[in-house]
Each structure stands twice: as C-alpha cells, then as structure tokens.
C-alpha cells in the first residue's frame, strides 16, 4: 500500500462581491498548481468564487488554544473602540 499520501491543502476563496478570501475547506493534491485545479473543481461548483488561494496545511502557523485568554480577552475591556460607546445627541444627526 502506498504511504505517499498527497499533502493536505487549505483552500481560500474570494467570492463575487469583493470581500476577503475566506477559508472554505481543504483537499489533497500533489502540489500547489494541482491544488488550485482541484479547488476550482471541488469548491466552486456553484459559482462560489472568482479567486482561489491554496496553502499547504503544514505551513499554517496557528495561535495556541491555551493562549486564548491572554490573546483575546484583553480586547473585551476596550469598549471605547466601538462606536456605540459614545453618546452623541440626536440633534447632531447621523455620525
């Protein structure tokens, strides 16, 4: 039995409306060019996209789950970054 499995790739697709590329799933392919072909065939069957990125899964560096607290909790206390933090009188109009 072959132990040479095609590597795993993560697929990112930008849809019709100019939003960022979004992770849509993964697939196996022998190299990047074929991964693009496969991604076209697998993930754009319903006209989902106009641009494809593929990245070898092994090349992705992910934040560690154990660091979730230190990484993301500090943002909770900075409510002033959100527009609703500020009261603007109605008379001023839309801002």
């Amino acid at each position: 039995m072959s132990r040479k499995e095609w590597p795993l790739w993560e697929v990112f697709i930008r849809g019709q409306h100019g939003l960022n590329h979004r992770h849509v799933g993964s697939l196996h392919a022998p190299d990047a060019e074929m991964a693009i072909h496969h991604a076209r065939d697998v993930y754009t069957r319903r006209k989902e996209g106009v641009s494809i990125w593929v990245v070898k899964s092994n090349d992705i560096t992910a934040s560690s789950p154990s660091e979730k607290g230190p990484l993301f909790d500090p943002a909770e206390t900075k409510a002033y970054r959100h527009p609703t933090f500020f009261d603007i009188p109605d008379e001023v109009g839309h801002m």
Binding site: E5, L8, G25, L27, R45
Partner: peptide, 29 residues
Amino acid sequence: AKVQDEAGHGLYLYSAAETLGVSRDDLME
C-alpha cells in the same frame, strides 16, 4: 451533478476527520 456532490461531501467529511489526527488514506484502508 448529484452523485458528484456526494463525492464532494465525502471529501468535506474526510477533511473534518483529518483535523482529529487521522489521515484520509488510513480511513480509506
């Protein structure tokens, strides 16, 4: 198109299983 979708669904699910540290070829075997 429908039977092709089933291949796609298999692919999505194998990918989900692979995130748990098992390879698709192992599952096939």
